[in-house]
Amino acid sequence: MITGKTKMADLIHLNHKLLPVIGRFGISLGFGDSTVNEICRKKGIETAFFLEVVNAFHDPDYYPQENLRQFSLQLIVDYLRNTHRFYLDKKIPEIEEMIEAMIRDCYPGKEHIDLIKVFFGNYRKELIAHIEREEETVFPYALMVEEAFLKGSLTGEQREQIRKRSMKDYQEEHDDIEEKLYDLKNIIIKYLPQPQDVSGCTHILYELFYLEQDINDHSRIEDKVLAPKVEQMEKVLLERYPLSDG
């Protein structure tokens, strides 16, 4: 398990897939022998939160504990937003560039890669829609609930919002973005006629596996940390401020 005393360099040796995660916290390389504690303090990062995230990421079976639920929703939402930016500004363009490169280095069968390009383009659109939905409806809703909870008051309008569409309802609306990624991997692995130079496909696959894993870990934080916390507050709010004081 990664603790505050772990050296940041050791953390990367332990699992290099944490590189983009620390990037999302605004930590860059060159940390010498500094520990997690030291770097977090220097960067003004809530150490306990950082630790929960990297541990949850590093060990798929790591169970986000009560303490992760202590953090303010704002902190969690900010982190989730940064992750979204990472997908949209970094990962997706990188994969698109790889696909473009394969089309440019065109071997016989360019039209097949064109199909992959179109498919990935559609996936990107859906991912953007998915992210927008979260950022424009789910996150503001979660923050609204937290605000009411901390303030200790609930307006009639807010109660109405909770009743009309609670966190559970938001969670139940899901799309097939995960399935599209799964399909794309299988198409490349099983069905795409392979070019002479297979390195392009290998690279793309590597990135797709990585993206899938990262999105799964991201969803885990939403499902196991954000949602239960909001639901708990909804319940308390509705109990504490029953109808009629609107």
Binding site: H112, L115, I116, D176, Y182, D183, L184, Y191, L192
Partner: peptide
């Protein structure tokens, strides 16, 4: 049989084949 779930994915398969 194919390991493809979405309509978009099935369409790509159909074109490739």
């Amino acid at each position: 049989k194919l390991g493809i779930k979405t309509v978009a994915g099935l369409t790509v398969y159909a074109i490739l084949n």
